[in-house]
Design a protein around this nucleic acid. Structure first.
Lengths: 223, 223
DNA sequence: ACTCATAATTCTGTATACAGAATACATGTG
DNA sequence: CACATGTATTCTGTATACAGAATTATGAGT
């Protein structure tokens, strides 16, 4: 594979700052489980596999620490952050509250076009669901939640939501629910989009709350 | 003044990692307005004033970028983040939602001793209010909000709240309300603590929501 | 064989050095 | 005098080098 990024990306786009590239690269490695929770990150080792020197790598690790994906132990270095069951629960409580807030705001300020776009994503997601394409479904699932929060037109809320979602991604990646739970999640999404289209804030909040409560039930055993 | 930190702190405590020291030092400089919003941060200049080399300084800037206090413009470096009126409003909306969530959780899980400790902080704050000691009041004000969130026993919520509070600190620092607004804020705090002691979640949420809504009214002109 | 001490190695933390990009300034031209 | 262009300087981005701490390996003593 040889995934060096040091000399790639020189083509059409003038490269979007090496820093960002290292960060998102490492983020993906953590989320996809290539770097496992609790695993110590040896700098030189990572440098070689990424084709970068230590200085930018260390800076990237500092950024990831800010996102809560790695932990910096002084004198020991970086470790992939480990989440306990309580951590996951706590995070879901917070993300639920954030999405509920976003829901209320979105019902007020979102344009009809924005809402239509959500419906469109939802439809595509349903297609992947029916086709049993887990990965594609999963990605659109993330996207629909992100888009919903974006409708609230509150960048700060969106930022917090985004980092929380990144932290949870790793967990949800594991949480392979069976077909019946999957179908239930899909149905919840349908209710969410419907409530949004009706701009029924109270109902939307209730449905989203339920959806994330169920999300906890779905993953709680897996953690 | 000569506030170098490169060779200090070698005494009793073995020094709490230079990185953290630089970060909190810069954070203070930003919050207290020594580094003004929009101001470009020249690395070498900062290095000299802090007595540190560029490498750890740059790493600290990356951390601060994660906290949202500085902005990293690729090819240009770090700039103290500038907040618009909408930014401040958006942040207060989010922090309000977080504190409301914390309030509900706190009413359930907080111990009587924890609540008593909040009352104790409140009393000290009231004393400073009566004595007209703004700075001491201000610090305890921050502390009481932080402590309230801590009662919810949700570290993730607490972390987000903390970074938001840091970002807002700079603003509130400016927002010097007159005596009558100050008294109103004090009265709101009294109601908050009372509701907490009664573990009346609904009322607590309402009062906190009002308090932060008023906080917006108090600072909106100053931004 | 086990334990403790000591040496060797490895890794982190920091400083310095160099290359490329951005900015500012000065000079020349219409 | 305005504007463009070339040059010089400054700053960022990255790599390398060195010092100190942590970890692991080694060996002597019991």
């Amino acid at each position: 594979m040889d995934g060096e990024i040091g000399k790639t990306g020189r083509g059409i786009i003038e490269r979007q700052s090496l820093h960002q590239e290292i960060v998102s690269r490492l983020r993906d490695m953590i989320i996809e489980g290539e770097l496992q929770p609790g695993e110590r990150l040896y700098e030189i080792q990572l440098c070689e596999s990424l084709g970068v020197s230590r200085t930018p790598l260390r800076e990237a690790l500092k950024s990831l620490a800010g996102e809560g994906l790695v932990e910096l132990v002084p004198g020991k270095g970086a470790v992939v952050r480990k989440f306990t069951k309580k951590d996951v629960h706590d995070m879901l409580v917070v993300i639920r509250s954030m999405e509920e807030l976003a829901a209320r705001l979105a019902c007020e300020v979102a344009s009809d076009e924005d809402i239509a776009r959500i419906r469109e994503i939802h439809n595509r997601m349903e297609a992947h669901f029916k086709a049993g394409e887990r990965m594609e479904y999963y990605k659109l699932n993330q996207q629909i939640h992100t888009s919903l929060v974006a409708l609230a037109d509150n960048p700060h809320l969106a930022a917090f939501h985004s980092t929380l979602q990144a932290q949870l991604k790793r967990i949800r990646f594991i949480g392979h629910e069976g077909p019946e739970l999957w179908a239930a999640a899909m149905a919840e999404h349908e209710r969410i989009v419907t409530a949004l289209e009706a701009r029924d804030a109270d109902r939307l909040v209730e449905v989203i709350g339920q959806h994330l409560h169920n999300a906890w039930l779905r993953v709680k055993e897996a953690v």
